[in-house]
Design a protein around this nucleic acid. Sequence first.
DNA 1: GGTTAAACTAACTGTTTAGTTAAACTAAAT
DNA 2: ATTTAGTTTAACTAAACAGTTAGTTTAACC
Lengths: 215, 215
Amino acid sequence: MQDTTPQTSRGDDTTRRIMDTAAEVFSEVGYAGARVDAIAKKANVNKAMIYYHIGDKKTLYTRVLHEHFGQAANRMRELLKQAQTPEEKIKTYIHYINQVMDENPSKAAIMMREMAGGGRSLPDVVVEDIATIIGSVVQIIDEGISQNRFHPVNPMCVHLMVIGALMCHKASRPIRQKLPHIADAMDQMAAMDHGDFVNGIETLILRSLTKQNTA
Amino acid sequence: MQDTTPQTSRGDDTTRRIMDTAAEVFSEVGYAGARVDAIAKKANVNKAMIYYHIGDKKTLYTRVLHEHFGQAANRMRELLKQAQTPEEKIKTYIHYINQVMDENPSKAAIMMREMAGGGRSLPDVVVEDIATIIGSVVQIIDEGISQNRFHPVNPMCVHLMVIGALMCHKASRPIRQKLPHIADAMDQMAAMDHGDFVNGIETLILRSLTKQNTA
DNA sequence: GGTTAAACTAACTGTTTAGTTAAACTAAAT
DNA sequence: ATTTAGTTTAACTAAACAGTTAGTTTAACC
């Protein structure tokens, strides 16, 4: 039954529900494992509506990837303009990645599945975005090294430690919840929210990069 | 056509081919996305042989997880016995994880998919193994802190940085190969082999953990 | 009230899928 | 040569699947 509150066209509302639900399902079982019927049922729409509003399964998946990962590099570049030192830029980068992943609970899992799949389904525009983000990390690290504030380091190690830790942390919440004895063994971790985890990552990354002689 | 070289029963050879191929297919598309017909075709066996030798799809997947991830904690515990200092133990731990992932190209991708899926399909014995490994990391970090050699730190940050970086590195090779301009931008990374990457991770982890006053 | 375009639906199609079965084949044992 | 147990196979089943269609409903417009 349609909600009667005034809003954009009914179609827009339907499309939103389809997109959000599709992201959830794709994050749970991946593109190949996702069932259009399952997406329709979970979104509480008739399956034909998916084809009417968006298109076939592949088109739906591509739009989900665009929506979640497109433009990520542009937004990061804007934020980096406001940071002065390499240390500040690294902080900005880490917190930005964390924020992007927190925008939607499905993002981290979809990223992990795409990575596990070798990025075969990633649209070129998303791949370019990833390349631009990595390029930014390379620039920050190079700047830090050239200013003698950072140790010489492989930027890929830094990037994958950040990306990997944050993705794994967010995607593995169900595993941690499944293991109360793990939670017991690390009770301050079990109680830890996102902010603390990303601050811990930030501390470790900066400590591993930064030379001691900097103020 | 059967190979005529003397070996164990033909069934053992068939089971081996099925298990290896299943691991590949599960790593490529996940459990839900894998097709039994595709596994059979790739393993060059009739589909019914999978049911005869191993069982249904879920049984096959569970055996693949056991084979790849079972016993991992025991082997690590044995190796850790030979390390003295917390620094040595951290090194042992990082290189052991790296070695486990290198045993089979499918491992990292399967781990990532399982993590992305919240570990829903993980057999309990594998989950216990993961818990034991994490417990070991907690012990090492606690030991380092209590001996005043490590900064106070969330072991989960350390563990997920190590696991995350290594998994992402191994699983993302096809993406790096897809992007020659990324390779160009980081040509020393593009040429980097496993050893250099894990050594980079080791350096960063130790530097982020270790207090400066230690020799 | 009538018209129309957009949104939505139940039922459908052809294909794909996991899993099974009866029969054939193979190699070892006699 | 025959028997037997283990291995393998082609063909099959019922259900699931992506995608389509003809028709209905809804809401905006006049």
